[in-house]
Every structure is written in structure tokens, then in C-alpha cells.
Computed example of a mutant assay.
Amino acid sequence: MLTSFHQYRTRSIRISLIILSLIMSKSVFAFEQNKINIASSIRPLAIIAQDLLGDSAKVTTVLPNNASPHHFTLKPSQVRQLEQADIVLAVAPELETFLIRYRKASKHPERHIILQEELGRTKAITKDEHHSDEHAHHHHGHDHSYDSGKENAHAEDLHLWLNPEHVAILAKAIIREAIKLRPASKAQLEKQLQTYKQKLIEIQASNKDQLSPYHKVFFGAYHDGYNTFSQAFGLQNAIALTSVPDEQVSAKKITKMRQSLSGAKCLLAESGEATTAKRYARLFKLKLIEIDLLALDPSIKTYQDYIRQITQSVSTCLTD
């Protein structure tokens, strides 16, 4: 009799645990299903979205770690990833060229948030930016007019996420679309936006302060991608060897760059281009500093982490 009771009790406990497990599984599934599904072209934008929305969003990155946004081609699985997303984040058509064709054929182009469009930017550089560039290039008494090549010396820097003020505008756009998807959470989402914007102000102030000793020092870059950061944090614009990665550098341009880079502290290069950049660093007698613009390091979890490591790399570059 006692044995039967114990068997009954054990069976009842087991059944209760199974039921509890099923209930919890359904709750977890429902929670996951209720998350806003965001697909980001590059990891820095994914970090910003996750940083902003936290557990209320599932954020994925389309571009693999070993790929360049300039030369990438979407696979069918990645097209499905974009189509299934509630929100698609990108910087600019000229940067993520792999999204141009997809966006034209997309069933839901209204889901796309393009940072460049949110900023109201145009491809042509404004007169103020012309003046700012010319001032930065001639400030040192050298001819720095070949920073991006004669044919694109005034091209817009599309690494727009490197400026916290731009990120605040992106965050506002993300929250705008999130409210459309979750109108009942409007008050909470707006509160998250205000908190995040304040955090961005603090990030810009603290990193600008760290870089303040170097505001008159200039540096070289393997490719043109640092002016947005420089302008946000009070630095001189980088003297860039190429406008985009993998661009062939002519002997004529190398000769001109010798003068432009005279007195530069170092040459910055992304990890994927460091091997090629080393040759030019030796040629111009500059130390080479690798920098992680695409946030490939998995330990970078927040935008604060991201800007901190960029600031550290630039500080190392500009320090004697």
C-alpha cells in the first residue's frame, strides 16, 4: 500500500513537472514571438538597436564577419532573413551596395530605415563641409588635398554611425517604427529613447574629452572612413590613401601622398585590410594601427563599448 502511494506521488510530481515545463516553454516561445525582429546590414547598427531596445527585440546582422559591405552579394537565406524582419537597418545605398537591388525588389520597402535618409543627407557635399574639409587639410602647412584622391576629394563619408548625434537620430527612427509595431508599449519605448539619447550625449562628451589633447594632430588612413568620427570628436580629418578598400593606388598618387602624409602620426587600417596597409605604412614610414570599424570583436556588446575601442585605437595612433 505504501509502495503504491509512493509510486502515485512520484508519477504525480513527474506529470506536474512536465506540465510546468510545457507552460514555461510556451511562455518563452510567446515572449520570443512578441519580440521585434530587426535585421541589420552591419553589426554596429545591430549593436545600436539591441542597446536601445534590449530584450524587446531580436536583432541579427546580415553581413558576415569576413565580408565587406562594398563587395558582398546576398544569398537566398539572407534575402529571407530581410523579408521576415519587422525592421531593416542600413546606412546608405552607396555603402551597402548589396542592398540596392534587394530594396528595389523588396515586398516591404517601408520597413527599411536608412540612416543617410534619416539624416536628410544628400550625396553632394554642402558648402559648409567643403569649408570644413579645406580648413582641416591646410591647417598643418602641408598640401593635404589628396586625402581621398582628386576625383573624390569631397566625397561624403558614409560611416555615419561613428557620430553619436547621428545615432540619436537613428534611435528615434527605430523607436518610431517600434511604436507602430507595438502601440501599447508607446510610453515605455519613448522613455527608452530619452534614456538612450542621454547616454549618447555622455558617450560623446567623455570620448571627446579623452581625445582633446590630439585635436591639432593629424593621421593617415588606408581608406576614407574616419571624417564622421573626427568631426564628432574634435579631430583633424584623416588623410586617406584610398576612397574605398581594395582601390588600386597609382604611383602618381603615392608621390603626392608622400607630401600629404608628411608629419602624420600613423596610418589607420581595418583588420581586413591590414596586410595591404602594412606595405604603405612602411613606404610612408608610419606606424600602422588596426581599428575595428565594423565591430567584429564579439566582446563589443554596446555602442559605448564600440566607441570606446575606436577612441582607444585612435589615441594609440596619435600618441608619440
Results as ranks from 00 to 15, higher is better:
residue 1 M to R: 09
residue 1 M to W: 11
residue 3 T to I: 14
residue 5 F to P: 00
residue 8 Y to C: 05
residue 8 Y to S: 11
residue 9 R to L: 13
residue 21 S to W: 11
residue 24 M to R: 12
residue 24 M to G: 05
residue 25 S to G: 13
residue 28 V to F: 15
residue 28 V to C: 11
residue 33 Q to S: 13
residue 34 N to Y: 08
residue 35 K to A: 05
residue 35 K to F: 07
residue 40 S to D: 07
residue 41 S to M: 04
residue 45 L to M: 15
residue 51 D to T: 12
residue 52 L to P: 02
residue 53 L to R: 14
residue 55 D to K: 12
residue 59 V to F: 07
residue 61 T to I: 09
residue 64 P to E: 12
residue 68 S to A: 12
residue 69 P to W: 05
residue 71 H to M: 08
residue 74 L to R: 01
residue 75 K to D: 05
residue 78 Q to R: 10
residue 79 V to W: 06
residue 81 Q to D: 12
residue 82 L to S: 06
residue 84 Q to A: 09
residue 85 A to N: 10
residue 86 D to Q: 10
residue 87 I to D: 00
residue 87 I to R: 01
residue 88 V to N: 08
residue 89 L to R: 05
residue 90 A to I: 09
residue 93 P to H: 10
residue 94 E to N: 14
residue 97 T to D: 05
residue 98 F to A: 04
residue 98 F to G: 05
residue 100 I to P: 01
residue 107 K to P: 01
residue 109 P to Y: 06
residue 109 P to D: 07
residue 110 E to D: 13
residue 111 R to C: 03
residue 112 H to V: 14
residue 114 I to K: 02
residue 115 L to M: 14
residue 121 R to S: 12
residue 126 T to K: 01
residue 127 K to W: 06
residue 127 K to N: 08
residue 128 D to Y: 11
residue 128 D to Q: 15
residue 135 H to D: 02
residue 141 G to I: 02
residue 148 S to G: 15
residue 149 G to T: 08
residue 152 N to S: 15
residue 159 H to M: 03
residue 166 H to V: 00
residue 166 H to T: 01
residue 175 I to Y: 05
residue 176 R to L: 11
residue 179 I to D: 09
residue 179 I to P: 04
residue 180 K to Q: 13
residue 180 K to I: 08
residue 182 R to E: 08
residue 182 R to Q: 15
residue 182 R to W: 08
residue 188 Q to C: 08
residue 193 L to W: 02
residue 196 Y to P: 01
residue 200 L to N: 00
residue 206 S to I: 14
residue 207 N to R: 01
residue 207 N to W: 00
residue 209 D to K: 15
residue 209 D to H: 15
residue 214 Y to P: 07
residue 219 F to V: 09
residue 222 Y to I: 12
residue 225 G to E: 07
residue 234 G to H: 13
residue 236 Q to H: 02
residue 236 Q to Y: 01
residue 238 A to K: 03
residue 240 A to D: 03
residue 241 L to D: 02
residue 241 L to S: 03
residue 242 T to H: 10
residue 248 Q to I: 15
residue 251 A to F: 06
residue 251 A to R: 09
residue 252 K to V: 11
residue 253 K to G: 00
residue 256 K to N: 14
residue 257 M to K: 09
residue 269 A to H: 10
residue 272 G to P: 00
residue 272 G to N: 03
residue 275 T to S: 11
residue 278 K to G: 07
residue 280 Y to H: 08
residue 286 L to W: 07
residue 286 L to R: 06
residue 287 K to I: 13
residue 290 E to S: 15
residue 290 E to R: 15
residue 291 I to L: 09
residue 297 D to P: 06
residue 300 I to D: 13
residue 301 K to L: 04
residue 309 Q to A: 03
residue 311 T to C: 06
residue 316 T to C: 02
residue 319 T to H: 14
